[in-house]
Design a protein around this nucleic acid. Structure first.
Lengths: 221, 221
DNA sequence: AACTGTGCGTTAATAAATTGACAATATTGT
DNA sequence: ACAATATTGTCAATTTATTAACGCACAGTT
């Protein structure tokens, strides 16, 4: 069993995917799985799965494989899904509202406050969470100490708001605004740049079509 | 100038970010920039920027750097943002509706149809685009030939719907459902797994806090 | 209980990505 | 016009990530 010391971000990003697949396996009633079989299902190599999991400890058994339940629990623990991070949402527009439904069923996070510039009384999100005005932010943070902020505000206000939130004790951001946040290195930022994602898709689609066309014309010659 | 032949996905994923920064520079009225200066602003090495750009051609000039306008145009072209892909959205719930606002201002894509199981008459999205019932999908596709589909439907229907859409000529998916799509290799899939993203953030926040605590207690000894 | 085969954890080999170095060539200033 | 400076494009070195190889431990079988 290796040390936890600085696991590669690439490995960390694969963990939720493992977790997702294991949850599916659990649902299907499968109780054990080998790295080989899991690799086949996930489109990876068995070697990579074993390597990845061994960054956190040896969860398998030689000649048997991995116990699905146990491995799922381990990853849950590794990802700290058993600890609920108090979170606030800044900007409750269309996107923010859409995210709340994810958040209420997500493990490892608990939405405890919603903030918006104009505090519309949206009660259909959750009866216990009405949207507060941004003026109440300081008071709220000093009382409830949220750990992470979900940033769904227009780009032009994002940096300023993020800096303010860091001063109020926020440790991490789930950033949906279209700018990069410039904050001290101890603050975690997970960007969801939808525009970037869409451009990547476009590039890949066009490239694929071009490749198919060329292959087609070569075949016709 | 190197060939375009199979540029690494990592490079492709960095292009939209370059584009974003260049757009900002343009707005600020900056007309030229060196790889060194851009690297500093983006938190990369100058070498990487030069290497990345050279996958597509030499856009810079020795002793001068890069012309912001020209480079921006080149990346726009590389990402095919000058070509508008016709797209349809499947599932117009909260998330879908939130995405439409992005899509109407995004380059390189044009939303031409919205579909949902129950075709609510949502006219506030766009007067020209009312939501059609899923039964009209086949007819619509054979007439308007959309290239990509934005999948915002519950996970349990995603795979079946995706397969159906491929049969109708869809070449790429922007997938917001929480499952992996299993399709032929020529079909492009860009997953936006929000759950995975959130778990990654959680891991990083917890890890950072733990590191700070340990550093603190070491300091106190 | 001995034997056979499976499959993990780990180390080694390979491949990929990033960074560094430098010649070539432009710009800038005098 | 010429030297000094800047900065690219490219190649080489380094680092990181992935894949393969293999010994050892356990499961399953007879």
């Amino acid at each position: 069993m290796k040390q936890n010391e600085s696991v590669s971000l690439l490995v960390v990003r694969r963990l939720p995917r493992y977790y997702r697949f294991l949850t599916e396996l659990k649902k299907s009633g499968i109780v054990r799985i080998s790295s080989k079989e899991l690799a086949k299902r996930m489109g990876l190599t068995a070697s990579q799965i074993r390597q990845d999991l061994n960054c956190f400890g040896g969860f398998g058994q030689q000649g048997y494989g991995y116990n699905v339940d146990q491995l799922s629990d381990e990853i849950e623990r590794i990802l700290y899904l058993d600890i609920s991070m108090p979170a606030i949402m800044i900007g409750v527009g269309n996107l923010g509202r859409a995210l709340t439904s994810y958040l209420f069923e997500a493990k490892g996070i608990k939405l405890i406050g919603l903030f918006d510039k104009n505090p519309k009384n949206i009660t259909d999100i959750n009866p216990d969470l009405n949207v507060m005005g941004i003026t109440k932010l300081d008071e709220f943070c000093s009382e409830y100490h949220p750990m992470v902020a979900i940033l769904c505000i227009p780009s032009e206000h994002a940096q300023q708001m993020a800096s303010r939130l860091v001063a109020l004790g926020i440790k991490g951001f789930w950033n949906f605004s279209h700018v990069e946040l410039h904050l001290e290195p101890t603050i975690c930022v997970e960007n969801v740049h939808l525009g970037d994602s869409l451009m990547t898709l476009g590039f890949n689609v066009h490239t694929e079509i071009k490749a198919l066309e060329e292959a087609g014309s070569r075949g016709n010659k």
